[in-house]
Simulated assay, not measured.
Amino acid sequence: MKKYLLAVTLLLGSASPLLHAADPEDAVAFRQGVFRAMGWNFGPMGAMIQGRKPFDAEAFAQGAERVALLASMAPEGFVEGTGIQDGFDTRLRDEYWYQQDHFNKLMTQMIEKAEDFSRQVGEGKDREALRPAFGQLAKSCKSCHDEYRARD
């Protein structure tokens, strides 16, 4: 719950300015690093859920906890002056800058799904029981990618 409250505070912009990167370059690096780290953890969990990799409950729990924490940190990297139009090599589409309320709604949903998923993993549920929550989290991530991430 504390992680969720921190994320909501960041989304609403009332967090201390000390939490934000000093310059746009740092914000872009932070944002991209958080999402890389999420993928680093999310990918192996997906392979375990799909049965492409043996299910390791300890590694899975660690990944879920990390994804929840990283999800709560992600909003901090979305600051003014960090878009393609500002000269940065980023996949953040221009739509973000004029649809921030919708983006924030999607980001909040992703944070909530990550927290819920991590909680369910912590309850010791097995792979099959975790499949729906993992799917909901993946769907939540995809909704933001579909609307605000430029395609390669």
Rank of each mutant, 00 (worst) to 15 (best):
Y96M: 01
E76R: 15
E65S: 04
R91C: 10
L69F: 03
F88N: 04
R91Y: 14
L69K: 04
A47I: 05
M45Y: 04
V67D: 10
A57W: 00
K53R: 10
G81E: 03
L69S: 01
L70W: 00
V67I: 09
A74M: 02
D56I: 07
E80S: 14
Q85D: 14
M45T: 11
I84Y: 15
Q99A: 11
M48V: 07
P75M: 03
T82M: 07
Y96P: 05
P54Y: 03
G77Q: 03
G81Q: 09
V79M: 13
T90Q: 07
A74Y: 03
F60T: 05
T82H: 12
E76Q: 13
T82N: 01
Q62E: 14
Y96T: 04
E80A: 07
A68F: 02
E80L: 09
H102N: 08
E65I: 05
V79Y: 00
S72T: 08
D86K: 10
Q50C: 11
G81V: 08
D94T: 12
D56K: 05
L92R: 13
E76S: 12
D56V: 08
Q100N: 09
I49P: 03
G81A: 09
W97Y: 08
A71R: 00
L69I: 01
T90G: 14
F78D: 09
A71C: 04
D56Q: 05
Q50K: 12
Q50P: 01
M73L: 06
L92C: 08
P75C: 02
A64L: 12
G87N: 12
D89I: 12
F60E: 01
Q99I: 10
G77Y: 03
A68Q: 02
F55S: 03
S72Y: 05
R66E: 14
R91D: 15
M48T: 09
I84K: 15
D56C: 10
M73K: 05
A47W: 11
R93K: 11
D94H: 13
R66N: 10
F60D: 03
R66Q: 13
A74I: 04
Q85H: 13
